[in-house]
Design a protein around this nucleic acid. Structure first.
Length: 430
RNA sequence: GCGGGUGUAGCUCAGCAGGUUAGAGCGUCAGGUUGUGGCCCUGAAGGCCGAGAGUUCAAGUCUCUUCACUCGCCCCA
């Protein structure tokens, strides 16, 4: 039994699985490039205040899910619980906005939240994310949403549902806030203590309370979309019409409010029916006030975060085939110590030619080496024994054809490259 | 944060009402005679029965605690 275990809510991604991760990450990068998004890499941790100010003091994330600690210099540091604020911080710190009219950024990174783990929910998870900073046009919403859509469909996902809502702009928010207060006024005293605070400070957050009673009371509360100003309504409608025009189907969800304070106007999630309660694979929206709140000029922006673990789980549940581990082309087997030396040299030569090659490093019998070669899925086994060393040749065996022949020691790589299977098969004397 | 389930070899699981040295399949390793794989056969290694405490003459098996995983609800990616 292992003495140490990975901390609760974390997991090891083992070699059998890493090719799948590499594949979807590659796909994401490919599509981001297609859309003109450029990669940004930000630190794993930031000043705590970056998150408390943007995500919101009363959100679940800030109140109970952050990994916060004081470093040796006395600074309050937090492992990033989301990717947007760090990207915006970097955007401002390096004045990226001065470079191009719209900054289109993407990232791949780890996210940390202290939550109760479940399938599809971890304390450390990975997100692909995109941020488009500097455009308030509906076309920007469409750009970001269609990128996510294209990425998900490129993996062969089906059954994913896009849900949309609009929270309204900074002008509408106070109106909606008041409406919510008015709605809740008759039963404030029945709300949980936490919600009574929310009622005062941030009524919107009452909507994601976990207490059963609060949820009942607020079930029929008005949604933000009922209070949009004309401009916001027009914006939202343009987004919808454009998506329709692109054949991207969606459903409107008036209850969709998102658990982070910084969202404004358009918000969206992509949901899968396959992950139970962890059905949200990708979520995002506009955050038109964040740049300004962090000390920059008024700059509209939007983006999304996409859960890599959830994506992989969904793909697995759909039985979508993803790449497996690569196999060596050649396995070099050696018999005896003299041959071993020649094998080391041969391995080096093969690899210099770019031929993926493996060998045995435990000094076992030829039979065992053959078994190993088979298990690793090598196409060819090159055998070197006393005879081969004497004659300066190697015996090359085509594993699938079960045929073998001898090739000059200094010409193996070329032989493999040039005449391949056919050449070996033709000259075989197996 | 709330409610349920599970925890025995690397993996998937047995283990009958608590009773001697804890099992299977797969995997691993070694053999089945001279330097050759996939099938088959033989053998071997590998388990503080998640951890801690308790009940008992005796606990993998009962009780409690704890840790972890898992399912549902909520929130989130």
């Amino acid at each position: 039994m292992a003495r140490f275990k990975a901390p609760r809510g974390t997991q090891d991604v083992l070699p059998i699985a890493t090719p799948r991760w590499q594949y979807i990450e590659g796909k994401f990068r490919e599509i981001c490039a297609l859309y003109g998004f450029r990669e940004i890499r930000t630190p794993t941790f930031e000043e705590t205040e970056l998150f408390t100010r943007t995500t919101g003091e009363t959100t679940d994330i800030v109140t109970k899910e952050m990994y916060t600690f004081t470093d040796r210099g006395g600074r309050s540091i937090t492992l990033r619980p989301e990717g947007t604020a760090p990207a915006v911080r970097a955007y401002l710190e390096h004045n990226i906005g001065a470079d191009l009219p719209v900054a289109k950024l993407y990232y791949v990174g780890r996210i940390f939240r202290y939550e109760r783990p479940q399938a599809g929910r971890y304390r450390e998870h990975n997100q692909f994310g995109v941020e488009m900073i500097g455009s308030g046009e509906p076309s920007a919403d469409v750009e970001v949403i269609s990128l996510a859509h294209q990425f998900l469909s490129s993996l062969g996902l089906s059954g994913i549902e896009l849900r949309l809502n609009s929270l309204g702009g900074p002008e509408d928010r106070p109106v909606y806030r008041e409406a919510l207060r008015k709605y809740a006024e008759p039963f404030v005293s029945e709300l949980c203590p936490e919600c009574q605070v929310r009622y005062e400070k941030n009524p919107l957050r009452m909507l994601d309370c976990k207490v059963e009673r609060c949820r009942e009371l607020l079930r029929d509360a008005p949604g933000p979309a009922e209070f949009l100003c004309d401009e916001c309504r027009a914006h939202f409608e343009t987004v919808q019409r454009s998506l329709e025009g692109l054949g991207i189907s969606f459903v409107l969800d008036p209850r969709l409010v998102r658990g982070l304070d910084y969202y404004t106007r358009t918000v969206f999630v992509f949901q899968t029916p396959l992950l139970g309660a962890q059905n949200e694979v990708c979520g995002g929206g506009r955050y038109d006030s964040m740049v300004e709140e962090l000390g920059g000029p008024p700059t509209p922006a939007l983006g999304f975060g996409l859960g890599v673990e959830r994506l992989l789980l969904t793909l697995e549940r759909l039985n979508i085939e993803l790449p497996a581990e690569p196999k060596p082309k050649v396995f070099v087997a050696a018999i005896g110590s003299e041959a071993r030396a020649a094998a080391v040299k041969l391995l080096a030569d093969l690899r210099r030619y770019g031929i993926a090659s493996e060998s045995d490093f435990t000094g076992r019998s030829l039979k065992s080496q053959m078994k190993l070669a088979d298990k690793l899925g090598a196409e060819y086994v090159m055998i070197i024994g006393e005879d081969e060393v004497k004659q300066s040749v190697v015996t090359v065996r085509d594993m699938a054809a079960k045929e073998q022949r001898q090739v000059g020691m200094d010409k193996v790589a070329e032989a493999l490259e040039l005449d391949r299977v056919a050449g070996i098969a033709d000259n075989s004397h197996a």
